[in-house]
Amino acid sequence: MKNTSIFCRSLLRGTGQVMFMDNVNTGALFLTGIIIGSWMYGTVIVAVGAMAGLIASTIPAYLLHKGEKDADQGLCGYNGILIGCALPTFFADTLFMWTALIVLSAMSPWLRELMNKPLKHLGINALTFPFILLTWLSFCFALPTATSVPTETVHGITVSSLAEGLMNGVSQIFLINSYICGALFLLGLLIADWRAAVWCALGSAAGIILAFAFSQDTTAITNGLYGFNPALTAIALGTVFRKSAMLTIVGIIITFFIQIALAHLLPQVGIPGLTAPFCIATWIILVITSKRKVNE
Results as ranks from 00 to 15, higher is better:
126 A>L: 07
119 L>W: 00
128 T>K: 08
147 T>D: 09
127 L>F: 11
130 P>E: 12
130 P>D: 08
158 T>F: 14
161 S>T: 12
161 S>A: 04
145 T>M: 10
151 T>P: 12
137 L>P: 05
143 L>P: 04
155 H>S: 08
160 S>I: 14
158 T>K: 14
163 A>Q: 10
169 G>F: 00
156 G>F: 13
168 N>T: 06
155 H>V: 07
120 K>F: 12
167 M>S: 02
157 I>E: 12
137 L>N: 06
131 F>T: 08
150 P>Y: 15
169 G>T: 04
123 G>H: 04
159 V>L: 11
153 T>K: 08
139 F>K: 04
124 I>Q: 01
140 C>T: 15
135 T>V: 14
147 T>S: 10
149 V>R: 02
162 L>I: 15
146 A>I: 08
128 T>E: 02
151 T>L: 15
169 G>V: 02
148 S>T: 12
166 L>P: 00
138 S>A: 15
166 L>G: 00
158 T>P: 15
153 T>F: 06
157 I>A: 14
129 F>S: 13
147 T>C: 04
140 C>K: 08
155 H>T: 09
161 S>Q: 03
149 V>H: 04
161 S>K: 02
145 T>Q: 10
148 S>W: 01
119 L>Y: 02
125 N>D: 06
159 V>Q: 00
153 T>I: 06
156 G>A: 15
147 T>N: 10
124 I>L: 07
159 V>D: 02
125 N>E: 01
167 M>I: 06
130 P>Y: 13
150 P>G: 15
125 N>F: 02
126 A>R: 04
152 E>G: 05
136 W>H: 10
121 H>E: 05
150 P>H: 14
157 I>T: 14
161 S>W: 04
163 A>V: 11
151 T>Q: 12
145 T>G: 07
141 F>G: 09
148 S>C: 00
121 H>C: 07
142 A>F: 06
161 S>L: 05
149 V>I: 12
135 T>D: 04
126 A>T: 05
130 P>C: 09
168 N>V: 02
164 E>D: 07
130 P>R: 12
135 T>W: 02
159 V>K: 03
131 F>V: 10
152 E>W: 06
129 F>V: 11
143 L>V: 00
167 M>K: 01
136 W>C: 11
167 M>N: 03
158 T>N: 14
161 S>R: 01
122 L>G: 10
154 V>I: 15
120 K>Y: 11
133 L>Q: 07
162 L>N: 00
156 G>P: 04
130 P>G: 09
126 A>E: 06
153 T>D: 09
136 W>I: 11
133 L>A: 13
137 L>I: 14
167 M>P: 01
125 N>C: 06
120 K>R: 14
145 T>A: 09
127 L>N: 05
127 L>R: 07
134 L>S: 03
167 M>G: 02
124 I>Y: 01
155 H>P: 01
137 L>V: 13
144 P>F: 07
